[in-house]
Structures are given as C-alpha cells and as structure tokens.
Design a protein around this nucleic acid. Structure first.
Length: 261
DNA sequence: GCAGCTGTTAGTGG
DNA sequence: CCCACTAACAGCTG
C-alpha cells in the first residue's frame, strides 16, 4: 500500500472508520515495527482516541486527542484494517480495540512498515528529514530542488528527503508521461523538460490518487497498467523495456523516452 | 527451487 | 558531500 496515492486512500479509510472512538485495548506485535519502546505506544494509545488524520508523502499521521499522534509508514505491504469480528487478521502488528468493540489492525506481512509517536506532523517531518509533499510542491520549489543536482532524474524523484511521496511505480509513470528517459541526468534537462516533469508529477499523482480513493481503474494511457516484461507501450510505440535505475526495477518505452547521449 | 517485488537503510566505492 | 549500487529485511507469487 505504499506510494502517495495509496496512502491517500488509507487516509480516507481511517477518516471513515476509526475517528472519535475511545481506545480500550492495545495489542502490539513485533518490536522491529515500533520506532520507540512498545510501552510508550501502549501508554499513549490506551484510553485515548483519534481525532483526525494528515498525510505527508507516504506517511499517515493519526492525530490523538492527547499526547500528539501515531505515525504510520506502510512499507511495501502494510495496511490498516477495520473490522467488527473477534479474529485478529494474520500479520497484525498493532491492534486497537475501541469502546464499541470494533477494532483496527495494522497488518504488515513483510514487516517493512514502521510506527512512530510524534508531537505533530511538522515536527516529525523535520526529525525524519522529509522533503515537501509531492502534491503540495510548487514549481519554484521543484526548480530549486533540481538546482545543482547531478544524478538521474528518476533517483531524484524517488528521494524522500527532497520530495515526499513518489516511489518506484509513479516515478516511472511521471517519466513516461513526460517522455523523459529515466537515466537522464538532472543537469542535462532543458527548462521545458523540467516544466513538463513538474506538470506530470501533479497530474499523475492526482489521477492515481483519484483512482485509488474512488476505486477506479487507471487510464489505459498509463505505463502502470503495462508494467511487466514484454508489454506493449500504451502509446503503441513498441515494447516496454526493463532496466535498473538507482537500484530499482525500471520500466520505460525506448521509443517515447529517448536516451540522452 | 528461485527470482522478483509499490520501501528504507547501512555499507561500499567512485 | 553527492550519487550509484548492493544487501538486508520477510512473505508471497509466478
């Protein structure tokens, strides 16, 4: 459940399910998920309640009535599940029982997720060196971030310290929509190309977020729908290629996205 | 059986 | 310091 659009969906989900209910029981799981002592989480959450939520990049901040809030990072497989029955879902790493007997579990099979306690989101952002949220990014901020960078554009887009919220999938999508080769060095981009990438960051994330939140499919013109070996380019310009960029599997169309010499 | 995967981080090396 | 690459984390899928 990881990149910005999927976390936006989780935000909508918790807003509709777990707010304003008193937490009467806290059950914690594997210590590695918890970024501070489990006892701190138990003490903070018990007899408390969530009053709202905020998203920053791939992180979800669940505001508590007292003592700050709970921050969730979903890793690659984490999600929040709200339910009324007794069986706790498999791979639950945190389960909260509310006064009305309903429950929420943070499940995380691969245990790449993380839970934090924080005073507020701004403090958390600072403490964890997170960049500006990809959907709050202004053109001026984006151009400033690009200034003086020498690495690949894909590596930059995925760097959470610079821009928070874009991962492997949507970095590829933004570059496909912008018709820019993923290994293009940032200092080789023209002003028009930078402008185009900025425009597509906002567009791609809005379109995917809308699709995730409303449970709709992605447009056929999206690379994300053709993200596998031997797939056809959505613009029918040949076969999609797979390479490694910044250590991550990368899909692109060699015809639409020309490599820089 | 084995490789690969929507994420992050530590370590290495250029 | 910046950047690229690798391995590691753990479970599931093809």
């Amino acid at each position: 459940m990881p990149e910005l659009p999927e976390v936006a969906y989780q935000k909508k989900y918790v807003d509709a399910t777990i707010l304003h209910k008193k937490i009467v029981k806290v059950e914690t799981g594997d210590k590695k998920i918890y970024q501070s002592d489990k006892s701190d989480f138990e003490e903070t959450l018990a007899n408390n309640q969530f009053t709202g939520s905020e998203r920053l990049g791939k992180y979800l901040f669940l505001n508590l009535e007292k003592n700050g809030g709970l921050v969730v990072h979903f890793g690659m497989t984490g999600k929040l599940e709200y339910y009324q029955h007794d069986e706790v879902p498999k791979y639950a790493q945190l389960t909260l029982t509310f006064e009305d007997h309903s429950r929420v579990s943070f499940t995380c099979p691969r245990k790449f997720g993380k839970l934090y306690l924080a005073e507020n989101l701004a403090e958390f952002q600072k403490a964890n060196d997170l960049g500006v949220d990809a959907l709050a990014l202004t053109k001026e901020q984006f151009f400033e971030i690009l200034e003086g960078k020498t690495g690949t554009i894909k590596g930059l887009l995925m760097n959470q310290k610079l821009i928070a919220g874009i991962g492997n999938l949507y970095a590829d999508e933004v570059l496909f929509q912008s018709k820019i080769h993923p290994t293009t060095k940032v200092d080789k981009l023209s002003e028009e190309e930078k402008q185009e990438i900025f425009k597509e960051i906002e567009k791609v994330l809005e379109v995917v977020k809308e699709a995730r939140v409303e449970g709709k499919k992605l447009p056929k013109s999206y690379l994300t729908t053709a993200r596998k070996k031997d797939a056809e380019c959505p613009r029918e310009n040949g076969e999609i290629e797979q390479i490694k960029v910044s250590g991550r599997t990368t899909y692109f169309c060699p015809t639409c996205q020309k490599e820089r010499s």
